[in-house]
Structures are given as structure tokens and as C-alpha cells.
Simulated assay, not measured.
Amino acid sequence: MQSIFWSVEEVAQRAKQFYENGIRQQVEHGDNIGKMIVIDSESGEYGIDKTGVETALKLKQKKPNARLFTMRIGYDVAVSFGGAIERTVE
């Protein structure tokens, strides 16, 4: 099966399966919490760095058509979009 035809949801699902079925136990410790992990959703190969950029570039060098998924170690989300919260007093 070629990953190039996978939807975004399939890429995410496959990468999360790799993470939950083995990678998590190897990487979730004090030194890595908050760092970014980039997972090749086809092979399960991964790398960790502060922003995920270096790892993504290395994985793409090895396999240019790799479908990569990035997440923050120890958190449920990789990126947070925020804004001001207005509080109204009645």
C-alpha cells in the first residue's frame, strides 16, 4: 500500500497507532516531555527534537514521499490557537 494515497485522517490514525502501541513507552519520560515527535505513518520510524523541523527534514531526506505526523510528547495537542477571553459581568 502506498501512503501517498492516504487521507490526512488515515495518516494521523496510523501514526497514533504506532505511538500507542510501543513508541509512547519508549519516549514519554522527563527529558522528552514537551518536545516534538515526528512519526512516519507507514514505517513507524520516528525522531524527536525541540520543534520537529530537523526530524521531519531528516525523515523526508530518507524517504521523500513519507507521510509524516507530528505531535508534542506528553500532551494531547501539538499546537494551541488562543486569543483573549472576554469575561462579562452581569
Rank of each mutant, 00 (worst) to 15 (best):
Ile4Asn: 02
Val11Ser: 09
Arg24Thr: 12
Ala56Leu: 00
Phe18Glu: 04
Ser43Gln: 07
Val79Ala: 11
Gln61Ser: 08
Gly74Trp: 10
Gln2Ser: 14
Arg67Gly: 06
Phe5Pro: 10
Arg24Gly: 03
Ile85Glu: 15
Arg14Cys: 04
Gly47Pro: 00
Glu54Lys: 12
Ala56Val: 07
Ile39Asp: 04
Ala78Phe: 05
Val79Cys: 10
Phe69Ala: 00
Val77Glu: 03
Asp40Val: 13
Val27Pro: 14
Val11His: 14
His29Arg: 09
Thr55Asp: 03
Trp6Asn: 10
Leu68His: 05
Val38Asn: 06
Ser7Arg: 09
Phe18Ser: 00
Ile48Gln: 10
Asp76Gly: 14
Glu90Gly: 14
Val77His: 02
Ile33Pro: 08
Ala78Lys: 12
Ser80His: 04
Val38Gln: 06
Lys35Cys: 05
Val38Tyr: 06
Ile4Arg: 10
Lys35Arg: 15
Ala66Trp: 01
Asn65Lys: 03
Phe5Glu: 12
Leu57Trp: 00
Gln61Lys: 14
Phe5Cys: 13
Gly52Gln: 01
Glu90Arg: 15
Thr70Glu: 07
Gly82Val: 15
Lys62Thr: 10
Tyr19Ala: 06
Asp31Ile: 03
Lys35Asp: 04
Glu86Pro: 07
Trp6Thr: 01
Val77Lys: 04
Val8Tyr: 04
Thr70Gln: 01
Thr55Gln: 11
Gln2Lys: 09
Val53Leu: 13
Asp40Tyr: 01
Asp49Val: 13
Ala15Glu: 08
Ala12His: 07
Gln17Phe: 08
Ile4Met: 09
Phe18Asn: 06
Lys16Met: 12
Ile33Tyr: 14
Ile48Met: 03
Ile23Asp: 11
Phe69Pro: 08
Lys16Gly: 02
Tyr75Trp: 12
Glu28Gly: 06
Asp40Arg: 05
Ala84Asn: 15
Gly22Ala: 05
Tyr46Trp: 14
Met1Glu: 13
